[in-house]
Amino acid sequence: MQIIKVSYFLIFLMLRIVILSRGSIFAAGIARRLGEREDVEMVRLVDVRRDDVLDQVRGLRPSLVILDATDAIACQRLSVAGILNAVPGVTLIQVDPRSDQIVIFKSVEKQAARVNDIVAAFHDVSTELCAGI
C-alpha cells in the first residue's frame, strides 16, 4: 500500500509542459533545460503561428504552459484567458527573460451562491498561493 501511494505521488508530480513560442532562442533553450529534469514527463514546443494552436495545446494535456513574453506573435495571438479556458486547471507561466521575471496564472473554478462566496474564494486562493511560495 505504501509503495502504491509513493508511486501515485511520483506520477502526480510528473510535469507535462507545453512552451508556446515561435521557437525563439530562449524558448528552445528552456525546453531543453526542462527536458533534462527528472520530474518532467514531457516538454513540447508548440508554434504559436499555427491556426490550431489551442487545439494542439489541449491535445497534449499539459499541467504547465509556458508563454514566452518576448515573443510578440505569441502574445498578440494568445490571451491568458484564452489559454486558461482552453485547458481548464492548467497553470500558465509567462516568462520574461528581459527582466528575469515570471508571472503565474492559474484558473480555479468554484461555485458561488452568494456574494460573500466571492470574498471567501479570494481568501482561499490567496492562502493556497501563499502556501506555495
Binding site: 530562449f26 524558448a27 528552445a28 533553450g29 533545460r33
Partner: peptide, 15 residues
Amino acid sequence: DHSLFRDGVVTLLEA
C-alpha cells in the same frame, strides 16, 4: 545580464 536568458542559451549551446 539576464540570467534566465543566459541559462536558456547555455543549454542550447551545450546541446
